[in-house]
């Protein structure tokens, strides 16, 4: 956590697989993630369709097909685990994580795993667990396991501009 907190900026590529029981094959999407400590996170999806999502000081903005949607993160329990999980982990903000999740942390020499279980019953009805894998101050994958069996796996890749 302390190591993560050192980071002020981040800009990485990501690929994401969404595995749904309704769909025959996983949906792939990719784009870039931007992070500015401590509370700005932007996810810019380029494929299959351009889309932008910005979390800034608790406010979420979705931009899709030239239309913007604003909402408070607190009002979107379904999206909160993924977004706040990444944001708070990147910020090394343990108190924020503990407000919404029960945390378990496995640390082996070259790799760590953070398992986040939602506390809120509404969220827990949808999201079973968020698993974040990383090593030292880098997050490698974020897996969100839904209660209905759906699962999204986001892999953080190459560091782009510093």
């Amino acid at each position: 956590m302390a190591q993560l907190r050192q980071r002020q900026h981040g800009h990485v590529a990501f690929t994401e697989l969404y595995i749904s029981s309704v769909l025959d094959r996983p949906l792939a999407s990719s784009g870039e993630l931007f992070y500015d400590a401590p509370d700005r996170l932007e996810k810019r999806t380029t494929l299959p369709r351009p889309e932008r999502m910005v979390l800034e000081k608790g406010q979420l903005t979705f931009e899709r097909r030239h239309k913007q949607y604003h909402m408070a993160l607190a009002d979107v329990p379904q999206a909160a685990p993924f977004i706040e999980g990444i944001r708070a982990t990147l910020a090394g903000d343990r108190p924020a994580l503990e407000r919404v999740f029960r945390i378990s942390f496995d640390n082996s020499p070259d790799q760590w795993t953070l398992r986040l279980t939602p506390l809120d019953s509404h969220v827990a009805a949808e999201v079973a667990v968020v698993k974040i894998d990383g090593s030292s101050d880098v997050i490698k994958t974020v897996t969100v396991q839904m209660v209905n069996g759906d699962r999204s796996v986001t892999t953080l890749g190459a560091v782009l501009d510093p």
């Binding site: 749904s20 309704v22 949906l27 999407s29 996810k43 889309e51 979705f62 379904q78 999204s152």
Partner: peptide, 18 residues
Amino acid sequence: SIDSMASPAGFMARDLLR
């Protein structure tokens, strides 16, 4: 609709797909 399922805002699309 399928494409939007993968979006972080896709939770409604997921619930409504069928």
